[in-house]
Design a protein around this nucleic acid. Structure first.
Lengths: 342, 342
DNA sequence: CGAGACTGTCGAACCGGTTCGATTCAACGT
DNA sequence: ACGTTGAATCGAACCGGTTCGACAGTCTCG
């Protein structure tokens, strides 16, 4: 393997000079710099990461800790991951992906062994035991998902409360007065998926303000349960003209459910969902939806994390809680309710 | 940070003795070993990864290089990734996930900087420029995906030729004589997705042997194109009673296409697909299918890679080409063709 | 014209592990 | 009684970078 010593020898200088020539941390004569650079690409020198990490205590690696639960939605998870890895690479960092069940243990291991310069936590729960560790770690951290207690970390999430309000408002503006909201199953809430009730709260609040009726149901997170659930809910509320979906599986199942009932959106019923644009493309979901912006959230988390890493431990920029505003992707599944039309 | 020096001091021994006590590479008295172990967990000592890597030239990290193409199927990719990271962790390794466009460059960077002990390449193409680099790298590599030239790497893939044969044979056994195969789009083949024609070849071969008619079509890899394609193909071959799908988007779109045509499987048409079991569960695809076994392929690749890493560079175990045999997951979408029934 | 500042370079130390050779001491065989 | 072996431990060197302090030579300015 070619070391900086080899480069130095080839350029006829000392190791330290070669190092300074490459880092530019001291003035080195242009002639020498050029000789060193020539030697570098003649020999194909790439510094040894371990040695550099040892000397600088910076690894240029960030740790990405996911919670990959069985009923977590795969396409969305991949979006988060790619957002993180791509942005990290753009900023000169590699990404260590950890899928370990025991996130607390993984965090301790990576932190104390100094394998990474910082952490991004995905799918952060309302009370997430990993945060406790992260706050005491010497590396900074960013989360995707809004926990109950945000200090010591930078937090990124979709603004779910506003999303709920926006869904209801949109339906109201189109003339609807009775809505059904289909959320994730209760166990998702119980394990800390606070986004479920955040969206529901926003929706309820706005519905109350506007004097609308809102029925809230938790649906299964996969087929065929969710199909049955949707049928049941539609049977139960024949007067409802608008459907709000905060449940990817429901969005995926709805087209066949509607077809089975001889309904079409927006002719018979209006629909608005909340899922990633990418997901909609792959499965051509024909519903207007709030983009969950997984990719963007991953990118922002990394961006902020790297800024904090490079500010050093004394950088005292205040911690962020960045809730990105919902944007509606209009796919034409909302119209006036049948009763208002000719 | 607590170093092995601190541990040694706390145990009243030299650094080298502490090191040997922990590694067991020399005999150390039980009393001392105990004192060292006590010191370790009193101080919470975890070795510095960079320093260890520098000394041992082993990082306990494997590099996972994906090609995340736009129309690559997200749920499947995540399955591969989790198979790799989970198995790696079980074997004591962490995983560096690289999504960089320029795989060749990434490979060179990680290899020369000695950041990883070995590589797993996903989505390997027929002629994959990354393989050339990998063969000359000092770290071993395993691929998921069968390239034209396999030497110097361990190769893992589903046996697509046999999968094609099996699809046709299964339909034949049920009494079908005219089949349609819907594959991935032509551009997937052109960029090296050889599995597409491998499956098609196997299918064609077996159809010829059995005297059956097989129509082969390339369909779009996403909606709404694939929906249109499916309609067109069904219009074009009214005599076909069996549908073979080697295209995930087609599988996802088929239920609504069938519904729109007033058809049901297996009543009017029999269907067999090739996609991951996990995908089928999430979307409740009601079709009998060959499991693409993404998770298992990832696990096997890592398993073999780690074996090769730990054998050291002189380990001369022959390189594998492990094509795992297709298994059919019966979901009841195959029956005798209508013409043969009462 | 000499003190002071600046430029460019080098040697040595350091980061935190692992590992080799040497050393001490007790047990053993003859 | 004495060399031999083996167990247990230590000090020093090494892995491959970075960085600090020193130093020689050149330039500047009073």
């Amino acid at each position: 393997m070619v070391t900086i010593g080899d480069v130095a020898k080839a350029a006829g200088v000392s190791r330290s000079t070669a190092s300074y020539a490459l880092s530019g941390k001291r003035t080195i004569s242009p002639a020498v710099v050029q000789r060193v650079l020539d030697a570098v690409d003649e020999l194909g020198y790439i510094p040894n990461a371990g040695a550099r990490a040892l000397a600088t205590s910076h690894t240029k690696v960030i740790g990405l800790l996911g919670r990959f639960l069985d009923d977590e939605f795969a396409p969305a998870m991949l979006q988060y991951i790619l957002g993180v890895t791509n942005r990290a690479r753009e900023l000169g960092y590699d990404t260590l992906l950890v899928s370990e069940e025991d996130g607390v243990h993984a965090l301790q291991r990576l932190s104390s062994s100094r394998m990474v310069d910082g952490f991004v936590l995905l799918n952060v729960a309302e009370r997430d035991s990993r945060l406790e560790i992260l706050r005491h770690a010497m590396q900074p951290g960013a989360t995707v998902g809004l926990p109950a207690e945000c200090d010591g970390v930078d937090v990124f999430d979709l603004d779910f409360i506003e999303s709920g309000r926006l869904m209801v408002q949109t339906m109201h503006d189109a003339g609807h007065r009775e809505l059904i909201l289909v959320s994730q199953p209760v166990h998702v809430v119980e394990r800390g998926g606070a986004y479920v009730w955040r969206l529901a709260d926003g929706a309820r609040e706005r519905a109350a303000e506007l004097g609308m009726t809102l029925h809230h149901h938790h649906g299964d997170s996969s087929q065929p349960g969710i199909g049955t659930d949707l049928h049941a809910v539609l049977d139960q509320h024949p007067g409802a003209t608008g459907l709000l979906l905060n449940n990817e599986a429901a969005a995926a199942a709805l087209p066949s459910v509607l077809a089975a009932r001889g309904l079409a959106a927006p002719r018979d019923i209006s629909v608005i969902g909340r899922y990633s644009d990418d997901f909609a493309r792959t499965f051509s979901l024909p519903f207007t939806a709030i983009d969950s912006a997984a990719d963007e959230l991953g990118r922002r988390a990394v961006q902020q994390l790297v800024a904090r890493i490079e500010d050093g431990p004394d950088g005292t920029a205040p911690h962020l809680v960045d809730l990105i505003p919902p944007t509606v992707n209009d796919r034409g599944s909302i119209a006036a309710p049948p009763s208002l039309r000719g």
